[in-house]
Simulated scan of single mutants.
Amino acid sequence: MASRFADGPQLRDYLMGIAQITPRPIFCCYERQPEDCHRSVLAGILREMLGWEVDEWQAPQQGSLL
């Protein structure tokens, strides 16, 4: 990230371009161990560089399929 986006404004401009094409984009990660989650790493970078909070997605209640 640091080599591609030297500062917050570059990263913000890039992400705003994505938002114009895909409103409300979602970051997904399916790691078994939370400390390996790439989504949380990216959320930390966005918090640090831009002051943006990236909330965890909360699935609606789901019943058993069995």
Score class of each variant (00 low, 15 high):
63 G>T: 05
16 M>Q: 14
18 I>L: 15
57 W>F: 14
44 G>M: 04
57 W>Q: 04
43 A>R: 05
63 G>S: 11
63 G>W: 12
65 L>E: 10
41 V>M: 07
8 G>S: 08
12 R>S: 10
19 A>M: 13
58 Q>H: 12
16 M>N: 11
15 L>E: 12
48 E>C: 00
20 Q>P: 00
39 R>F: 06
4 R>D: 13
64 S>Y: 14
27 F>E: 01
36 D>Q: 15
7 D>A: 06
50 L>A: 04
49 M>D: 07
35 E>V: 02
23 P>Q: 05
26 I>H: 13
64 S>R: 15
64 S>H: 14
49 M>G: 00
13 D>N: 10
7 D>V: 01
45 I>K: 08
59 A>T: 04
17 G>N: 15
64 S>C: 05
18 I>S: 07
60 P>T: 12
55 D>P: 00
50 L>S: 03
35 E>D: 09
32 R>Y: 13
39 R>M: 05
47 R>A: 10
65 L>W: 13
57 W>E: 08
23 P>F: 06
48 E>Q: 09
62 Q>G: 03
6 A>V: 01
66 L>V: 04
50 L>R: 06
3 S>D: 15
39 R>D: 04
63 G>Y: 12
63 G>Q: 14
8 G>V: 02
46 L>M: 14
21 I>K: 10
48 E>S: 06
37 C>F: 08
9 P>Q: 10
55 D>M: 07
59 A>V: 01
65 L>N: 06
16 M>I: 06
31 E>N: 10
17 G>F: 10
13 D>V: 02
56 E>C: 03
51 G>N: 04
59 A>F: 08
52 W>Y: 15
65 L>Q: 11
17 G>S: 15
18 I>T: 06
21 I>Q: 14
2 A>C: 03
42 L>M: 12
29 C>Y: 07
1 M>R: 09
13 D>A: 11
50 L>K: 07
50 L>V: 05
29 C>E: 07
46 L>A: 08
37 C>H: 06
65 L>T: 03
28 C>Y: 13
3 S>Q: 15
53 E>H: 14
26 I>R: 14
27 F>W: 10
59 A>W: 11
1 M>D: 09
51 G>M: 08
44 G>W: 13
12 R>H: 15
4 R>W: 14
28 C>Q: 13
66 L>Y: 08
28 C>L: 11
63 G>V: 04
37 C>L: 01
22 T>D: 08
51 G>D: 12
6 A>I: 01
34 P>N: 05
65 L>F: 12
30 Y>D: 09
51 G>E: 10
10 Q>V: 00
14 Y>I: 00
41 V>T: 08
58 Q>D: 09
26 I>F: 14
4 R>V: 02
35 E>L: 02
